[in-house]
């Protein structure tokens, strides 16, 4: 039994329209909730590198957007207390063993690291994933360090002549993280005026 092509087209069209409508409605009901969740996630990752004691604002709403050396936009979240900037945080990226490692770094106005946390990575479970705070305390060792402390030539993993331990079986991941942090500090140093300037 052969039916005309227009009928099939019509049926397909009706289904596409119907489910399009259903999805539009779902989006309508969930989009606000999803935006709230994304905001909470952002606040959570920020609160790990910007201690609650140093701020009385919501850093998610106090931002400056700068361009890094490659022209990529970096959003800088600023923590303030009594209207004075007490710390800033922004995302940094390192190259790991299995692609990009995304981190959040917090820096105080005197250029010392307030904290570093891994936000997302695809490193090997059991080897490279020890950069996560919940797997090992490795990432905590960066807190309090700065560009001159240790000196620039020591801002490497031990295997490359620096001072940071790699993990047994995984050198590439820590190497990527260390250089991402160093780049982040250099970025901060180069743009200090703009970052700490007018709000």
């Amino acid at each position: 039994m052969k039916q005309p092509a227009t009928k099939h087209a019509l049926i397909l069209g009706v289904f596409c329209f119907g489910f399009g409508l259903v999805l539009a409605l779902t989006d309508l009901f969930t989009s606000k909730e999803i935006a709230t969740r994304a905001m909470e996630d952002r606040q959570n990752s920020l609160s790990q590198v910007l201690p609650a004691a140093i701020l009385d604002n919501n850093p998610v709403t106090n931002t400056v957007i700068l361009k890094d050396a490659e022209g990529k936009e970096v959003t800088i979240y600023r923590a303030t207390k009594a209207d004075k900037i007490t710390g800033v945080a922004f995302e940094i990226y390192g190259t790991g063993y299995a692609g990009e490692v995304k981190l959040m770094i917090g820096i105080d106005p005197a250029s010392n690291i307030l904290g570093v946390r891994v936000l997302a990575h695809k490193e090997t479970p059991g080897l490279g994933d020890r950069i996560e705070e919940k797997k090992s305390d490795w990432i905590l060792r960066f807190t309090g360090l700065a560009l001159g402390n240790p000196p620039a030539e020591k801002w490497k993993v031990k295997k490359d002549g620096g001072q940071f331990d790699q993990f047994s079986g995984a050198t590439i991941t820590p190497r990527g993280v260390v250089s991402a942090i160093r780049n982040g500090l250099e970025f901060f140093a180069a743009h200090k005026q703009e970052i700490l300037g007018a709000r």
């Binding site: 259903v22 999805l23 779902t26 989006d27 009901f29 969930t30 909730e33 999803i34 969740r37 909470e40």
Partner: peptide
């Protein structure tokens, strides 16, 4: 897509 959106919103 619906499961994706609903889980993102209410089972985050």
């Amino acid at each position: 897509t619906m499961v994706d959106l609903i889980m993102n919103a209410w089972m985050h």
